[in-house]
Design a protein around this nucleic acid. Structure first.
Lengths: 204, 204
DNA sequence: CATAAAAACCGAATTGACTCAATTTTAGAA
DNA sequence: TTCTAAAATTGAGTCAATTCGGTTTTTATG
């Protein structure tokens, strides 16, 4: 049951993703035709649709790998946060933001976000929602850690605070990718300014 | 210059919007074919594209009317807010949320949001961003009003706070429209819980 | 090794948004 | 009223994502 067939399957998955990633980068998401991806991956158009429900899901697979790396990088900060609430948040969110544009262009992010709201029940739509939740959870974990370290008041609603911080950052990130000329440094500064209000309210 | 031609133009605009609104509601955004909209509006496909750059812009025109009504309704709250910070925020955001689903289905919202991130430079993309900014500004105005009334500390950064409140609400609203089974009451309760942290920090 | 069922592949056909060159309608001057 | 240029309308044609029925490959059984 799991010999040649499984190997070919994994190989084709990889080839499709590699071809798509290269073409998305070079020609943009819209500019990358399925036919071209198929040719480059040396499979037929029909086969691509056998592996992915639609074009968006191919992008989705790429985005998911990316965000999982980001989550991984974030773990370090949660385990060992800066000894100051503002810096701790800034460091974690900074990792999210800086990493996010390492492999994916703004255009790819725009498409990915659009697809995830347009088709929330597609495989990628669900995966994207799960990723958002994982990021929220990581921020919540950081806050819990800071509470344990005595840097954040114990009576703060950590869940609600985590959501608030994530939602604000995410919305700022959305606006950021919508404007090609927006700079990362400005985004981070704007988020710091917003978080300052929260920090003042929750720091011990 | 502004006789028959202008009248026909306004009339066609209206017919197209009315036909589209009905079809979007009945068949959904994807299910509404341009050809069908054209037939129902008694114009040709080409004419629709003479009036709107693409299908999304038609939806955009409908959404914009809707949001402008919401902004209007919000003015009343800003002018005369409840004498309690938490209630004031809840009332204003409540108006946004309740009104938002009065004319537009969740599916229409999903599409509108998706298009606005996908094509941020299209007429609708820009209009949507402007509407978001107007809502943020109205929240900021409410906060300024509450500061003037002595209900909110004067040293709070009203701009940053307005952004924080809007961004959080908007993100919650996005998640809300992504799940058909999500209920308005739960959405409002979740936002209240998040805002409680802010209210505790800023109330005099 | 032969073979039948299952799984995967393939690409021509379908579908629906959008374009554009030809045609019709309107405005305004003579 | 007649005529011409500008504006607007039209629908057949283009393009690219997605579908689907026929074909090939793989598996597993005797």
């Amino acid at each position: 049951m799991s010999g040649l067939r499984a190997r070919q399957k994994a190989d084709r998955h990889r080839r499709i993703i590699e071809a798509a990633a290269e073409l998305f980068r070079d020609a943009g998401y819209e500019g990358a035709k399925i036919e071209t991806i198929a040719a480059q991956a040396e499979v037929s158009v029909g086969t691509i649709y056998n592996y992915y429900q639609n074009k968006g899901d191919i992008l989705g697979a790429i985005v998911s790998m990316e965000v999982n790396e980001v989550l991984n990088a974030g773990q370090g900060v949660v385990a060992n946060p800066p000894a100051n609430v503002g810096d701790a948040l800034d460091t974690l969110l900074g990792i999210y933001i800086e990493h996010s544009l390492h492999y994916l262009s703004k255009e790819m992010w725009r498409q990915a976000m659009a697809i995830s709201t347009q088709l929330p029940d597609s495989p990628f739509g669900q995966a994207y929602t799960a990723l958002d939740r994982a990021l929220t959870e990581q921020i919540r974990a950081l806050i819990a850690r800071l509470q344990a370290l005595g840097l954040v008041r114990r009576d703060i609603d950590g869940q609600a605070l985590g959501e608030l911080v994530f939602n604000n950052m995410n919305m700022m990130f959305i606006e950021f990718v919508k404007r090609d000329e927006a700079r990362i440094a400005e985004l981070r500064a704007a988020i710091r300014r917003q978080n300052r209000i929260l920090v003042a309210a929750i720091a011990v």
